[in-house]
Write a protein that binds this DNA or RNA. Structure first.
Lengths: 196, 196
DNA sequence: CCTGTTATGTTGACAATGACAACATTATCC
DNA sequence: GGATAATGTTGTCATTGTCAACATAACAGG
């Protein structure tokens, strides 16, 4: 073999995650095999097992990274545009990385088995709840927070599945339509001005 | 082989769907293999190919049946309890058949490839839109309809993934909590009384 | 009836995959 | 510098989806 690099890759774990991430986004979860990722990283078919005990663990690591990215995207958006922007960032993330989003929420991986995954996900949701807190306090407010989250999450899912007919756009840009949909509801327990 | 029944099963297609449905709910989508379903139906590993061109088509058929079931569940609920009950039926369906629901919305199957699937899904959503129409008319109302659907769908997903901490129940039954969450929002464009 | 055509199942392959075991090479630390 | 652990490799296996070739049953027209 002419193409035999150094015996030790030196930085394999991140390389595998990169390769797997590309495979995921381009071919979908079903086409993401351990062996193909190994090939793309230029190592033997069994090398990944030194870094991930099984396929599920690789996927869990991908999902964990996804939650981290979603979290920072939302924080950045919140800093500039407030709550509104936060929700829009959530939807945008889903539409820009559809396969990753599905992996994160599709239930394909046993969350209980992967502590790091669960934690990174929880962090994101806590950030959302905190941002909502000022407007929605008290017991009823907490239910409303869940509703807000569900709304944003559900809209992401439906757009992702292309389940919202293009006629619903009615000539608007997609982002504009998202804004309108998110703005079309009011929270019963809201404190002062018009939230959303 | 002593256990060799008649050469022709006689009713294989539905039998396969039954077996596959059980496998799906009990073991999850990943464990649903064509060969295992064939085994459970008592036929050879290739018999399913006389009824489904490939694995994806079997899954599509399962999803199609799922949409049909969801549709009737929602219609029944609507007949008795109105809009509220409709939304609750949606959530209940998701929680009672988690794997089926995930199959229907997880994006694991290429919707474009399966016309029957797309149609049965569309029927369900049209039913929902129609039920919403009286309360939410006009352009703004249509955005609100999408919001309502997204809310119900997102809540289902989050509950399914066990992403809503049990502390959010605050002592209530789950159904009660669902009611409260769905009831915590108002539609900006609503016509008369308090919708939900 | 019985015969040929079609629907439905079966057997037998093949390549790809996840996983395990045994072995090889390099890093690290006393 | 030599033991020991970390990291990669080769070899192997059972399972799976799918294709091709064959077998059996249902059924139609004479």
């Amino acid at each position: 073999m002419s193409t035999s690099g150094p015996y030790h890759h030196g930085d394999l774990r991140p390389a595998l995650l990169r390769a797997a991430g590309q495979l995921l986004e381009k071919q979908g979860l079903a086409a993401l095999s351990l062996r193909e990722t190994a090939r793309r990283a230029g190592v033997s078919h069994n090398a990944p097992y030194r870094h991930f005990p099984d396929r599920g663990s690789l996927l869990a690591a991908l999902a964990t990274a996804g939650f981290a990215a979603l979290g920072t995207a939302m924080q950045e958006a919140a800093a500039h545009g407030g709550l509104r922007a936060m929700g829009e960032a959530y939807v945008r993330f889903a539409l820009e990385r559809p396969q990753r989003f599905r992996l994160m929420f599709g239930g394909a991986l046993p969350i209980a088995k992967h502590a790091a995954l669960r934690e990174s996900a929880t962090r994101v949701f806590e950030g959302l709840a905190q941002a909502l807190a000022p407007q929605l306090a008290g017991p009823a407010g907490r239910d409303a927070s869940i509703a807000a989250w569900a709304l944003v999450h559900g809209l992401s899912q439906l757009l992702l599945d292309e389940r919202i007919a293009s006629s619903a756009l009615r000539g608007r840009e997609r982002d504009e339509m998202v804004r309108a949909v998110l703005g079309s509801i009011r929270f019963a327990a809201a404190k002062p001005q018009t939230p959303a």
